[in-house]
C-alpha cells in the first residue's frame, strides 16, 4: 500500500513538473493559459499540495496577478484561492508578500477574479496577518461588495465582514466611507 502510494506520488510530481516546465518554456499564450488552468485545478486537490509547493507554484501564481492578460490573472488568482486552503501554502504565500498582490485583484473587472481574491484573503488571515488584511481600505471595499447586485459577491463579502474582522472595525470603516477617507479599492478602472 505505502509503496504504491509513494510511486503514485512521484508520478504526480513528474507530471506537475512537466506542466511547470512547459509553462516556462512555451511562447504560446494559449498553451500558457491552458497549463495555468491545469495547475490551478490541480491545486484544488489536497494530494497535490506538497508537489506544488516543491515546484514553487504558489510564486508562479502570484507572478500571474500582475499580468496584462486577464485570463492569466483569473487563473492565477483561482489557483491561489485553491492553494491557500492549505496551511503550508498559506504561509508560503504570506512569506512571498502575497497580500498586496491579492488585494489588487479586488479591483478586477471579472467577478470570478474578485471572488477568488476575497476567499484567498480570508484564507490568508492569521494572527500575524490580520491587521494587514483588515486594513480600512479592504473593509470599505467589502462593505461596497456587500451591497452588490451579485448574490455571490454580496454573500462572500458579508462572510468576510462577519468572520475576519470585529464589529468595531466595520463600524469605523462605515464612518470613514461617509467621510472623506474613501478609497477606490475594489472599483474597477473604466474600460478604455
Amino acid at each position: 500500500m505505502s509503496k504504491k502510494g509513494s510511486s503514485e506520488g512521484s508520478d504526480r510530481f513528474e507530471y506537475l513538473q512537466t506542466l511547470v516546465t512547459e509553462f516556462q518554456d512555451t511562447d504560446s499564450e494559449d498553451a500558457k493559459e491552458q497549463v495555468l488552468a491545469n495547475l490551478a485545478n490541480f491545486a484544488y486537490d489536497p494530494k497535490n499540495m506538497e508537489a506544488l509547493r516543491e515546484l514553487q507554484v504558489p510564486d508562479l501564481f502570484l507572478d500571474m496577478l500582475t499580468e496584462e492578460n486577464e485570463n492569466f490573472v483569473e487563473f492565477g488568482m483561482g489557483g491561489l484561492c485553491n492553494l491557500s486552503m492549505d496551511r503550508e501554502c498559506r504561509d508560503l504565500i504570506l512569506q512571498s508578500g502575497g497580500i498586496p498582490l491579492v488585494t489588487n485583484c479586488l479591483s478586477s473587472r471579472r467577478e470570478e477574479t474578485v471572488l477568488s481574491a476575497i476567499t484567498t484573503l480570508m484564507n490568508l488571515t492569521t494572527a500575524a496577518s490580520r491587521s494587514e488584511i483588515t486594513d480600512p481600505a479592504i473593509l470599505q471595499c467589502m462593505l461596497r461588495f456587500s451591497l452588490s447586485e451579485s448574490p455571490r459577491l454580496r454573500n462572500l463579502a458579508t462572510v468576510f465582514l462577519q468572520d475576519c474582522c470585529t464589529e468595531a472595525q466595520v463600524a469605523s470603516a462605515e464612518q470613514q466611507m461617509q467621510g472623506r477617507h474613501q478609497t477606490a479599492l475594489g472599483i474597477p478602472l473604466p474600460k478604455d
Partner: peptide, 9 residues
Amino acid sequence: AVKVYTINL
C-alpha cells in the same frame, strides 16, 4: 473548456 474551478464556483 479552459476553466479554473474554485470553491466559489
